[in-house]
């Protein structure tokens, strides 16, 4: 499912002393099946932006187009939009509530009014996608490990089979192994289901490894957008707003300064390995 955002603005609590211009005139579009990274430091408006994409908050002004649906202004009808744009919140395991993992994952689909058979199928599919064995279905979601809790929560959103999946820092607070597992499952879901994925992240390494294109937010404005190479070529500007480029990109830059002939488009350790091997091949 594709997504288009035009001149979107959002003012939080207008008319009170807490008034804040959280989103300022943002426009971008996402094609169906893309894997987009949304980066920006804390308070840059990422969370506010994604909550508008799935209809939880309504834009102060501007237009959001999701598939065939057009959402304009305060009175827009956003009912059912959350089933089309699935949003996984930060620390999603904090929203678990049901007695069993099965019931918790079934919450979304049953709110959609699906048949029992369809719900059952979706719960099974979602559990498989996030790598949870179905034998765990009758366990309490509070009795499993932190990483597994998070998978349960992600499965709860996946089970609604949204056309666009947005994940707000899905790896926050996980250990390296848990992080890789979650991100690998997301990549698998993206490939298998053809979902459009928007990954909100702090980690340049993560977005470099998984995303096709990046959006950079700073103080509510869209500062940069483009392919990895386009965005990461602005290393200095990124540093100014508290972001950065992947460490391996920084390392390649340092090596280039020492006259080692590495190309500029090194964003992951894998890229670096290949380029260095190529270089060594030339030298030997």
């Amino acid at each position: 499912m594709n997504l288009k955002v035009e001149n979107l603005s959002y003012i939080y609590a207008p008319g009170t002393p807490h008034e804040k211009h959280a989103i300022k005139d943002i426009s971008f579009s996402v094609e169906s099946g893309e894997f987009i990274g949304l980066i920006g430091h804390s308070g840059s408006g990422k969370s506010t932006l994604v909550q508008q994409l799935n209809g939880l908050e309504k834009p102060t002004s501007g237009t959001i187009t999701v598939g065939d649906r057009v959402i304009t202004g305060k009175n827009a009808d956003t009912k059912g939009l959350c089933f089309e744009v699935g949003l996984v919140f930060q620390y999603p395991e904090q929203q678990l509530f049901a007695e069993t993992i099965y019931q918790d994952i079934a919450f979304g689909p049953s709110n959609m009014g699906l048949s029992q058979k369809e719900i059952d199928l979706r719960v099974r599919t979602a559990m498989e996608l996030v790598g949870l064995p179905f034998s765990m279905a009758e366990k309490s979601p509070f009795a499993v490990s932190g990483g597994q809790k998070r998978r349960v929560a992600i499965a709860g959103v996946l089970a609604m089979e949204p056309g666009i999946l947005i994940l707000d820092e899905p790896t926050a607070g996980l250990d390296p192994k848990g992080r890789d597992e979650i991100l690998d499952s997301i990549r698998k879901i993206h490939k298998q289901m053809g979902m459009t994925v928007i990954l909100v992240s702090h980690s340049m390494e993560d977005v470099a490894k998984y995303c096709d294109r990046l959006l950079v937010l700073n103080e509510g404005e869209l500062m940069l957008s483009g392919t990895l190479a386009e965005v990461f070529s602005h290393a200095d500007e990124l540093k100014k707003v508290g972001l950065s480029v992947p460490q391996v990109t920084q390392m390649a830059q340092k090596l280039r300064e020492k006259d080692i002939n590495l190309p500029e488009n090194i964003f992951t350790v894998q890229d670096a390995l290949q380029e260095i091997l190529k270089l060594r091949g030339k030298l030997c």
């Binding site: 959350c82 919140f89 904090q94 929203q95 919450f107 709110n111 959103v157």
Partner: peptide, 13 residues
């Protein structure tokens, strides 16, 4: 608020 948003995102009425 956060929990409500999260459940609303799963279609809680």
């Amino acid at each position: 608020d956060k929990i409500m948003s999260a459940q609303k995102a799963r279609g809680a009425a």
